[in-house]
Nucleic acid binder design. Structure first.
Length: 646
RNA sequence: GCCGUUGUAGCUCAGGGGUAGAGCACUUCCUUGGUAAGGAAGAGGCCAAGGGUUCAAAUCCCUUCAAUGGCUCCA
């Protein structure tokens, strides 16, 4: 037997016989470790922990805690789901069953049999029962002919269709218990690892995502190696439901929708509008400081504008259709993006290299025809306002400007308490350059500018090749909210296309015409989406500087109404958003209602406060700040806001 | 757009072939109270819209609209 060298992540090298599996390597370290190993990464490829390793290799032992470990675990759970389904519903046909971000699903064709959410419990129990048999997942290489024969006998046309596309010699089956599936793997060693199971939802899904194909039933589930982890997961699900921006938006009277106005067209209520105004002012201030110039453009634009920009060709059919002038028959589109308008602003006057960079900013409302089924609360709407800006820069300025935009985005995140974020850099596919426009030099410049800027700013980045837009590379920010969900917010994109199409120019120091580079950026993305994410992030407890109502005055009785009104005037003079609860209710009731409305500061005023000319301050949640003069309250608030924003 | 589910008062929801119910919110009255729900009375609904079945429809059926969970899409 020959010997192989296994290199572990800590750099240590161990010698084993060829054919040793990752699991055996783990066992050689400790039994306890081996018990937790669910898969392995051999030379960067995720494989079964039981797969014999034949050559020298870098080995990473994967546990539940590893992302690849989870995926393997969930993929194996999908097989367990399929096994349970076959046991409970003989004759079901199986489509595909992959792992997803959280959990897994299996697409199945129940034929004439019915499956509803009431059957979830039954299915979970069956899966648990099968999991407890602790059956091994067994890998078997099969020929294409064997594979076809197996599934022909089984009568599963979906699997047969999948096999069609596979090459002979690279087909494998995995079996556990009485179930065999076509699968590339890898899998966990045995079903016994799966200790807790939850079938989460049911949905229709077309075979291979094509609506011309038959619709299958997609069963979603999630599994865990410990019961306690499932419990935690259920708590987070509940929490997510509690934080749903649609629910909180209604409760806090921030926004609404009306069938009459139209689907996907949000109506901002007074409190929501105030919150939005605060966000706009906040960003506007930061942008002015960063050298942006506000511009304003109309909500519609001539069809020719979008023909020039190329958007008509690409999206014309899928847009709200043009409106026509009654006499001339000219066609105008609702503005689906601000960039072409800004290009025309750039062109309004000749530019010198000394003028650049030029930064035009606009909170521009745009309208896009999103498919009815796509609409969702404020995160996916048909009319929304982008915190848009376009920077027209010289090629040599791309990096510096990019850095400044990153600074701005990070400032926004910090001010809104998004502490956990990553950046995705999308570059062009180096093997398929024809898909993209712009010269190689410019791409090289832009791509290295993005990479270097991100590195300089210490961003935690992921690089995705081939994910760039056809007109340029980009950087997207993904933030994690308070309960760990990821959202894509800000985006920064470099664009060579529009300057070309609009023939934008500036005169260089050489007195020749040059083409500027355009940077699109939106730290919020859109105000609608950002507010939605923010609501879910803070569960409606907005930072003091942003919250629509900062202070509520609660007079103990009507006798102190006048005193309360005087206080209100003082607060308003200091630009503090305040109101009085003058209902004929007891203090306890008023406090409860203020708590429900998530009002950060309550001022209780009665005989004592009136006599001493003070207010008693209660923070939301119950903390007592004691009594103080209204002036010291104002300075307390201002200090608080200053800390939040710096 | 496609498939499933849902649509009853401002909100959260119950009911269900014989022409509507609760709690909260709202209005009025009593109460003038000190840190998370005081009491009473009142008002409020074409039961999403349209069409069918029926002696009778909010209830059953069909269509449409909208919301919702997915799929496909996202400049």
């Amino acid at each position: 037997m020959s010997e192989i060298k296994i290199t572990l992540p800590d750099g240590s090298v161990k010698h084993f016989e060829a054919g040793t599996s990752a699991l055996q390597v783990a066992q050689s370290i400790s039994e306890g470790l081996a018990r937790n190993i669910i898969a392995a990464k051999v030379n960067g490829k995720v494989v079964d922990a039981t797969l014999p390793i034949l050559t020298d290799a870098d080995l990473v032992l994967l546990k539940w805690e590893d992302q690849d470990g989870k995926r393997t675990f969930w993929h194996s759970s999908a097989h367990l789901l399929a096994e349970a389904l076959e046991a409970l519903y003989p004759g079901v046909k199986l489509g595909i069953g992959p792992a997803v971000e959280t959990g897994f699903y299996y697409d199945v064709d129940f034929g004439d049999q019915k499956f509803t959410s009431e059957d979830f419990g039954k299915l979970e129990n069956k899966m648990l029962e099968l999991a407890r048999t602790n059956s091994a997942y067994v890998r078997k290489e099969v020929s294409k002919a064997e594979a076809i024969q197996y599934f022909t006998e089984k009568g599963d046309e979906y699997k047969l269709e999948l096999i069609e596309d596979l090459n002979d010699g690279e087909i494998t089956f995995y079996s556990q218990g009485n179930f065999t599936d076509l699968c590339r793997g890898p899998h966990i060693p045995t079903t016994g690892f799966i200790k807790a199971i939850k079938i989460t939802s049911l949905a229709g899904a077309y075979w291979r995502g094509n609506e011309k194909n038959k619709q299958l039933t997609r069963i979603y589930g999630v599994t865990f190696p410990k019961k306690s982890e499932l419990d935690e997961y259920m708590v987070i699900l509940e929490e997510a439901k509690r934080r749903d921006h649609r629910k909180i938006g209604k409760e806090l009277e921030l926004f609404t929708f009306s069938e009459k106005v139209g689907m996907g067209l949000p109506l901002w209520l007074p409190k929501g509008a105030r919150l939005r105004e605060c966000l706009v002012q906040f960003l506007q201030k930061a942008q002015v400081a960063a050298g942006y110039q506000p511009v304003i453009t109309p909500h519609i634009g001539n069809k020719n504008l979008y023909i020039t920009s190329g958007h008509y060709e690409k999206y014309g059919e899928d847009s709200f259709q043009p409106i026509k002038t009654p006499r001339e028959g000219e066609e105008f589109f609702l503005k689906p993006m601000n960039c072409p308008h800004h290009c025309e602003i750039y062109k309004a006057s000749p530019k010198s290299y000394k003028d650049l960079p030029v930064r035009y900013a606009e909170f521009g409302t745009v309208y896009r025809y999103e498919q009815a089924g796509e609409l969702h609360g404020l995160t996916r709407v048909r009319g929304f306002t982008q915190d848009d800006a376009h920077l027209f820069v010289r090629p040599d300025q791309v990096k510096e400007e990019f850095c400044k935009v990153i600074d701005l985005v990070l400032y926004v995140f910090k001010s809104l308490d998004f502490k956990d974020y990553t950046a995705q850099i999308s570059l062009r596919d180096p093997n398929n350059k024809t898909k993209y426009i712009g010269s190689d030099e410019n791409w090289a410049l832009a791509e290295s500018a993005i990479i270097e800027s991100a590195a300089e700013k210490g961003l935690n980045t992921v690089i995705e090749l081939g994910e760039a837009a056809f007109y340029g590379p980009k950087l997207d920010f993904m933030v994690k909210d308070a309960i760990g969900r990821k959202w894509q917010l800000g985006t920064i994109q470099v664009d060579y296309n529009l300057p070309e199409r609009f023939e934008l120019e500036y005169t260089g120091s050489d007195n020749l015409k040059h083409r500027p580079v355009m940077i699109h950026r939106a730290p919020f993305g859109s105000l609608e989406r950002f507010v939605a994410v923010l609501i879910e992030h803070c569960a409606g407890n907005f930072p003091l500087w942003l919250t629509p109502e900062q202070v509520i005055i609660l007079p103990i009785s009507e006798k102190y109404q006048e005193y309360a009104e005087n206080l209100l005037n003082v607060l308003k003079k200091h630009d503090i958003r305040a109101l009085i609860d003058d209902r004929s209710e007891k203090t306890g009731k008023k406090i409860r209602d203020a708590e429900m409305k998530k009002l950060p500061l309550m001022l209780i005023v009665g005989e004592k406060e009136q006599a001493e000319n003070t207010v008693s301050v209660r923070k939301q949640g119950g903390e007592d700040l004691g009594s103080m003069s209204v002036e010291s309250l104002v300075s307390w608030i201002n200090k608080e806001i200053e800390t939040q924003l710096n």
